[in-house]
Design a protein around this nucleic acid. Sequence first.
DNA 1: GCTATATTATCAGAGCTCTGATATATAATC
DNA 2: GATTATATATCAGAGCTCTGATAATATAGC
Lengths: 155, 155
Amino acid sequence: MDNSEIPAIGEGKRGTDGHIAYLLRQASAAVRQRLEQGFAAHHITLPQFTLLTMLKSYPGLSGAELARLAMLTPQTVNVITANLLKRGAIARVRSEEDKRIFVLSLTEQGARDLAACRAIADRVEQQLLAATSAADEAVIRRWLVSVAAVGESAE
Amino acid sequence: MDNSEIPAIGEGKRGTDGHIAYLLRQASAAVRQRLEQGFAAHHITLPQFTLLTMLKSYPGLSGAELARLAMLTPQTVNVITANLLKRGAIARVRSEEDKRIFVLSLTEQGARDLAACRAIADRVEQQLLAATSAADEAVIRRWLVSVAAVGESAE
DNA sequence: GCTATATTATCAGAGCTCTGATATATAATC
DNA sequence: GATTATATATCAGAGCTCTGATAATATAGC
């Protein structure tokens, strides 16, 4: 095989001239892998970390509410919460007012796991912006939010 | 449930003040969903589109080379290429020089699928940058590449 | 040449994510 | 109150992604 023309990250289509959707995906995958590598010692995945974070901010959410907040389907949230329940990181009790729904909240174990992973995430995020000016960071943050919001209004 | 304080995209922690890793993930997921929705009519997934694109640029790659290029594990690439083979989008023949590896390339069907999805992706990417100045776009592209490259040198 | 190491492909298992379908409970309509 | 529509949870199946382990081939060192 002649691999001499295959580019490394930052070169060719993998550099700043590449497709923006590809660059976004490549960056997101890199961060995800860094975070999951850090979380591995606590046996928490990134989706689990996301849901734990949301449950800390908004205790008492149902699966459906969590799904909307996380932009996931209820089925996906069901899988993740099932694994968190197995780990004892969250509690799940039937609601009194609405007997369809289960109310979710952090356990003490879950709060401990979350705190440990939060510290790791903070360190990674700091590295992501270490070489970026405040003005550039503002540009980047605005763009990321606008991209996430596409399709919210148009639907 | 009292949901009055749950934020929408762009508000609270989901806005420009949120964690940068979360914003990146949120934006990437939104783009992924938009692309896959567009690709659905052609029965091509985003990972499949990515590998087809790479095989068009570099025909004759092996699974291992494809994995390095896509920043995926060989096992993951194996799953995706197996599905592309089932769809008849790629061909796979044993190499003469090195009998361990299988040489991959696009079929005519795969080239047609790729062209159709490329047009869809171009439209989505255009929308992503429609409201962004050239200067801001350059800032964003540089940052995305730098984030993807983290861990390449440090490992 | 022979042994040790590295590379490639693949099997097995876990978790995340989607679409589609189903059952139950609540809300709206008549 | 009965019917209809909506919301919630869940089952089933597909695809993507990882870690860990195994077998075959190729390369390096002796």
